[in-house]
Every structure is written in C-alpha cells, then in structure tokens.
Design a protein around this nucleic acid. Structure first.
Lengths: 130, 130
DNA sequence: GTCCCTGCAAATCCTTTGCACTCCT
DNA sequence: AGGAGTGCAAAGGATTTGCAGGGAC
C-alpha cells in the first residue's frame, strides 16, 4: 500500500461528505469545496474521492442517472431513488448479513456485500402531482 | 405512444440479447450484431437498446464498471458481480414483493421495484488464485 | 531531498444526437 | 407518400490522466 500524505483538500472533501446527508456527485462536491478552496480542481476532487473509496472511508453509488454519487456513510444501508426528481434517500435495512447468506446458496463464489437500489416516487413528488 | 415500425436491426439486437446468458454491454452487442449486419452503427444499437428498455422488453444494469449492461431477462431477479473479473451472474431471489414492502415503511413515498447488486469473487477467480 | 499531491488541460470512455437518406406500412 | 429507422460523424457529459510545479515529511 502506497504511503499516504496529509492534504487539506482531501480533508475538506471528506468532512464535506461527512457533514451532508444527501449524496452529492463529484461536481456538487467540487462546487461546495470551491467556496473554501477556490483553486481546487475537479481532477483533484475525483482523485481524492476514488482514493477515499479505496480506503473504504466513503461509498460510491451508481443509481442510474449517469453520474456517480458519493455517500459518507459506509455503514450497511440501502437507497431509495425517486424516479421523478432523482433524489436519493437512505434506507435503514437490517439483516444485511442474512441477505448475503441467503444469496450465497445461488452463487459459485463468495459474496461479501450487496447494495440495493429501490425505485419509486418520493412523497414530495407525490404531493406535488396530486 | 409513438408508432413502432419493424426493423431487422432491432429484431437482431433483441434475439441476440435473448439468446445469450451473459449481460453484454452495448459495445459487445454491437460486435455481435456486426457479424450478421456489418453496416449497423453503434448509434443504432444504443437507440434500439434504449427503446427496448422503455418498452420493458429488456433491462439495463449499472453494475459499477462504467458501462451499461443489458439483460434480456426481465423477470425479477438480482445480480452477482465479481470484483476480480467483472463477470455478472443471475441470482434467482424470491420474495421481491415482500422486500419492497419491508422497505416501504422507511420511505415517504411509493416503492415499486428494486435491484440488488451482490459483490464478491466468483468461483472461477477463487480457483485461479489458489 | 524525496515522493506524494495539486492544478491545469488534454485525453478517454461511453452515450447521445443532428442530418440526410432508406425502408416500412 | 409519410414518418420511423438507419448510418455516419460530430457532440456531449462524466471521469481519468500526463505533466510540471508545490507541499508534506
């Protein structure tokens, strides 16, 4: 494993991600960090996000809208994605281990994790339409 | 809904997808169709794949490797993705309705479907390593 | 001083789109 | 004939990468 050096950009990205409850894209994080470090570049944001994902400190989500989203919460949980507005909400699903084991019987290999994406229409959009 | 006309390219894409058990990318499908129709263009492949997804005849998967994969099997089932070789295998998970309902209690809105991606190392890769 | 990290810009990958032409119906 | 579908190539969006300079240790 490569030796890691401190960088305030990385710290800033990490704390930005930890402090928000949404699941921003790289671009949204970029915009946010820019307020504190106007010179930071998008490339740096991507590099650090990928690094943090490798380190297991954050999670990358591909919910289907083309862009990657990032989640500072690495505890096992799932996601609800609204078809209308694209918002992403956390879903505290238990029995993560049990679900992996359940699936295990169908696979030649080893399952160590899973992500579930739930799709539907969120309450806000439901109320807007009606 | 727009009127649909026959096209042999679309038929070919559809039957290609139905006949294979893997989950090819648009590019892989393109390569495969090219054997029969050397002049087909990648744009046409994408256009038809998206059309078929809209019609609900095939399914689009985003498993995390950047490219979209397509699945001719639209019955509710889930997927196992190998971290090593990137292969994707079907997983016959039952209780789909029940899982949606279980998640429903945590969400303000309506859940109508979900996809689960399981991650691990497939048997082939396990055996190769050891 | 060394080596990692950065900003910048160019490059890459995947996917979509505009246009003129072709093929269904 | 009319309009959906096609091939081609250019455009688009998201992400990665090469490089020279800057910062951590």
């Amino acid at each position: 494993m490569k030796q890691l050096k401190y960088s305030r950009q990385r710290e800033s990205i990490k704390s930005c991600l930890m402090s928000r409850k949404d699941h921003p894209t790289a671009d949204a994080i970029y915009a946010s960090i820019r307020e504190e470090y106007p010179n930071i570049s998008l490339g740096t944001v991507y590099r650090n996000l990928n690094l943090l994902v490798e380190l297991g400190e954050i999670q990358k989500l591909r919910c289907g809208d083309g862009a990657d989203h990032f989640d500072g919460d690495t505890s096992p949980h799932h996601h609800f994605i609204c078809r209308e507005c694209g918002c992403i909400k956390d879903l505290p699903l238990s029995d993560s281990e049990k679900i992996n084991q359940m699936a295990q019987q169908y696979v030649d290999g080893t399952i160590d994790s899973h992500i579930t994406y739930f799709y539907g229409v969120c309450g806000d959009c439901l109320r807007k339409t009606s």
